[in-house]
Amino acid sequence: MTPTYYLLLSALLFTIGAVGVLVRRNAIVVFMCVELMLNAVNLSLVTFARLNGDLHGQVMGFFVMVVAAAEVVVGLAIILSIFRTRRTASVDDSNLLKY
């Protein structure tokens, strides 16, 4: 086994996340799939840091986590406010920008 296996795992996780974004209808589950894709990229960043023997990849993974946290907070607030006005969390039902 070589460290390339981590990259294969990361690629598979990213693919599963992308398929989930395409398939699922619940906005919250779609959001979780986006999180899975970010995690997959983080795994490859950590693996690259280990392969290259310096810490820049890990620092990049740290920044990805910070951005993901901010994104989750704003995204969930948007989903909640949509749910408050439309009483639905399905991505199919939200086809207007307002009301």
Binding site: P3, L8, A11, T15, A18, R50
Partner: peptide
């Protein structure tokens, strides 16, 4: 298709990589 694309690229480009290690 995406899985085949990414795994193919990764497997080909990193088949003889040197692991520097931390």
């Amino acid at each position: 298709g995406l899985a085949v694309l990414i795994t193919g690229a990764v497997a080909r480009s990193l088949i003889d990589v040197t692991d520097q290690g931390l």
